[in-house]
């Protein structure tokens, strides 16, 4: 059977190819996957997971992580913050049949036309040693005593005159890593009254591994699923018209006038091509038609 039995152009990418692309993105844009306080600029070795980056990143002076504000310590008379980090690692995708990612039992075997995603999230938070805390207590007590009516910073009201946050020095982060697995699929369908078909990503399941107690795991999983289903995935929906590539315009830009309207469009779903894109044989496959119309 030929690739193009039911279309003009066929394109596919297999999971190993996508996973390699993901690794290149993670190494060349580490700041998309690593978040930490500015403290770690000079001390990246203190992060939970060493950041693997391409040499060009350092050469260009690009950041290894996106700088975030310290986590505030509520109630202190002057802003006090703790260093922290969040790092995403081990990103991987697996197209049906499942063989590149070992899904947790809760998600079952990967069903046909489904894809699995895996990511590890490592969270680190500074735990100031008792010596540092004990050293600070008298100073904060004195500040509290000097102005007993001050509201809690970070909770009740923002300070009227912002003061620089006192970030406690970090010697070591307390870290833990969670592995998150998700199963998803893509489908075509209308949005609202618009008859144009849209390509949508649907979440079938999500599992955070080894989070205890179980109710907490259920709670967090439910929250993440809700955020993904209502907040993030609807934004990824793409109309069919956005996938039509106008060849005529592309060639006109190069000085060639075809005299006809030539486009590349997704092949309509049919009995011969029931899924487009198709998630099968460890690949994401797309079937495309060349359409020529009189101008």
């Amino acid at each position: 059977m030929a690739f193009t039995d039911h279309c003009s152009i066929f394109a596919s990418v297999n999971e190993e190819g996508i996973n390699r692309v993901a690794r290149h993105i993670m190494r060349q844009r580490p700041s998309l996957f690593n978040y930490a306080t500015a403290f770690f600029r000079e001390r990246p070795k203190l992060l939970c997971v060493p950041i693997d980056y391409a040499p060009e990143v350092k050469k260009a002076g690009n950041p290894l992580f996106a700088v975030q504000d310290p986590i505030p310590v509520p109630g202190t008379p002057t802003p006090v913050g703790l260093n922290w980090s969040l790092q995403f690692t081990k990103l991987a995708i697996d197209f049906h049949p499942g063989n590149a990612i070992a899904l947790p039992p809760e998600l079952g075997a990967l069903a046909p036309q489904r894809l699995a995603l895996r990511a590890a999230a490592c969270v680190g938070l500074d735990c100031p040693p008792d010596g540092v805390i004990n050293e600070l207590i008298p100073r904060l007590e004195a500040l509290n005593a000097a102005s007993p009516d001050k509201p809690f910073t970070g909770i009740a009201l923002p300070p009227r005159q912002p003061k620089e946050t006192l970030v406690l020095p970090t010697r070591e982060l307390l870290c833990f890593c969670l592995e998150v697995y998700a199963v998803a699929h893509v489908e075509w369908g209308p949005i609202g009254d618009d008859e144009e078909p849209w390509l949508k990503v649907r979440l079938d399941g999500l599992e955070i591994v080894d989070l205890r107690p179980q109710p907490m795991e259920d709670l967090i999983e439910c929250y993440v699923k809700t955020v993904l289903r209502l907040g993030i995935l609807p934004r990824l929906a793409t109309p069919m018209s956005a996938m039509i590539l106008n060849i005529t315009e592309m060639l006109q830009d190069k000085g060639l006038d075809l005299g006809k309207k030539v486009t590349l469009q997704p092949t309509p779903i049919s009995a011969d091509a029931p899924h487009n894109p198709a998630v099968e044989q460890d690949q994401l496959k797309a079937f495309i038609n060349l359409v020529v119309e009189e101008v």
Partner: peptide
Amino acid sequence: MAHLNVAVSEEAFRRSFELLQRALV
């Protein structure tokens, strides 16, 4: 298995060629 595959049917190639030859002078 190659990571990326792209296939163009003979018919699509033929039609593209027909269109292109009109534009080439």
